[in-house]
């Protein structure tokens, strides 16, 4: 069995996530099979695409329910970008979408000076710069890091979600991924 299951939801750039995992010496496979998601050592919920089509795919395949069971059983999971947003309760993208609901909070359209918010930005309190490309962001009591006032990381129990793309954030991104994969 692979070290990491990357959840497939029909749209999305899973190749870059897998390439980053492989640079860290981890094997991975792209699946939406609920049993594999429940049993995996580590799961990544990646993020490109639209919230509605992603949730439809996750609900139809049973992956959403498997992610909830995995969360309840303490299985470590990383959500990236849309993958972080989907873990919250609702999103106002696509006219309103119910999320997986692992964490409290809601996803709202950004009102920053330029939208999409594109490029590298410093994340506080961590200090490093990571790459962002988003038009929506989460608002959550489980926020653990911000960037220019925007919530960019959430954590509750075994779920960690980040708005930036660690797989596209150079050495800082790989270091972050490694910390997620091998908790102290």
């Amino acid at each position: 069995m692979s070290d990491v299951v990357v959840v497939d939801y029909g749209a999305g750039n899973t190749r870059s996530v897998r390439a980053a995992l492989s640079r860290l010496g981890r094997t991975s496979e792209v699946l939406s099979d609920p049993q594999a998601i429940r049993g995996a050592q580590f799961v990544v919920l990646p993020g490109v695409g639209s919230a509605r089509s992603a949730m439809e795919h996750l609900n139809q395949t049973g992956a959403a329910e498997a992610l909830r069971e995995r969360f309840a059983n303490g299985g470590p999971t990383l959500g990236i970008c849309l993958g972080m947003q989907l873990a919250l309760e609702t999103s106002e993208e696509d006219g309103g979408v119910e999320g997986i609901g692992l964490l409290s909070g809601h996803v709202r359209r950004l009102h920053t000076e330029r939208v999409p918010r594109l490029g590298w930005a410093l994340v506080e309190p961590w200090g490093d710069a990571y790459y962002f490309a988003h038009s929506f962001a989460g608002e959550s009591p489980d926020s653990v890091a911000t960037s220019e006032g925007v919530t960019v990381a959430v954590q509750r129990g075994p779920f960690f979600g980040v708005q930036f793309h660690p797989e596209k954030s150079g050495a800082a991104g790989l270091d972050f991924l490694e910390r997620c994969l091998s908790p102290a």
């Binding site: 190749r15 870059s16 390439a19 596209k168 954030s169 150079g170 050495a171 790989l174």
Partner: peptide, 11 residues
Amino acid sequence: VAQVADVLDIP
């Protein structure tokens, strides 16, 4: 594109 994506860790 695929070969570049496999080695590049920036967008």
